[in-house]
């Protein structure tokens, strides 16, 4: 899933200055799972903002809604009839949802309520960590299923570096060394000989480096 975290409320308040009718729009997908922008977080933020503005003596109307997804037209269309009532929409979806809203509703200011962080997993409730950076050319077949692009601080395709110590990364003792995990896996799989295979220079053009990316599937396209 896409993992996000809530923006500090004071930062949100700053961006909402001057708007009198605001819709807080949650998303039922990833940000619900990572507890940053689902129905619950919408309700909490809405309550806090209502109190804030009231305490400031400002009559600001805050309303709540949560869509199934904000990254598909069909769900975003659900607010087409009502969106014009609002001075601004504060989206608690990831950056994808915020932008798709902004592209769709040209005349409404769309503001982000979360900081989108990474693609990751729920390690345990309340703990999420990164697993993928969407480089566009998966190399997991060569690295025992563990990704050095997203999990090595230096993205070393032929690691580990000299800073790997007791299974941890040099940047922080809390961060596991991706290459230690790769090597442990190779050992478990009885494939240590794979370690000596040099991974060639990567084509980063399918990553951020190549500019905004697009996937087109002609066979399913309408």
């Amino acid at each position: 899933m896409i993992v996000a975290k809530q923006k500090p409320i004071e930062e949100i308040i700053e961006t909402l200055k001057g708007y009198n009718k605001i819709l807080i729009l949650g998303c039922n997908e990833c940000v619900t799972v990572c507890e940053a922008g689902g129905k619950k977080e919408v309700a909490v933020l809405a309550s806090a903002l209502r109190m804030y503005f009231m305490n400031q003596g400002q009559e600001v109307k805050i309303e709540e809604a949560t869509l199934e997804r904000q990254c598909d037209h069909e769900y975003l269309e659900e607010i087409r009839k009502t969106v014009d009532q609002y001075d601004a929409v504060l989206s608690l979806a990831c950056g994808v949802g915020v932008q798709f809203l902004a592209e769709k509703y040209m005349h409404t200011p769309i503001l982000p309520g979360v900081d989108t962080c990474f693609m990751g997993v729920t390690e345990e409730r309340g703990v999420w960590s990164e697993r993928c950076q969407g480089c566009g050319q998966c190399i997991l077949a060569w690295t025992a299923g563990i990704c050095p692009v997203s999990r090595c601080a230096k993205r070393l395709l032929n690691g580990p570096c000299g800073g790997s110590s007791k299974g941890k990364c040099e940047i922080n003792k809390e961060v596991p060394c991706a290459w230690q995990i790769i090597i442990d896996r190779l050992n478990e799989l009885g494939r240590m000989e794979d370690y000596e295979r040099l991974i060639p220079i990567k084509d980063w053009s399918t990553e951020r480096a190549g500019g905004p990316r697009k996937v087109v599937r002609e066979d399913v396209r309408s």
């Binding site: 580990p160 570096c161 790997s164 110590s165 240590m192 000596e196 040099l198």
Partner: peptide, 17 residues
């Protein structure tokens, strides 16, 4: 550096490079 077991294979890899 850790893990020690790959320190020599790693040298071999650099030689191969």
């Amino acid at each position: 550096a850790d893990p020690f077991e790959i320190r020599v294979p790693r040298l071999a890899k650099k030689i191969a490079a």
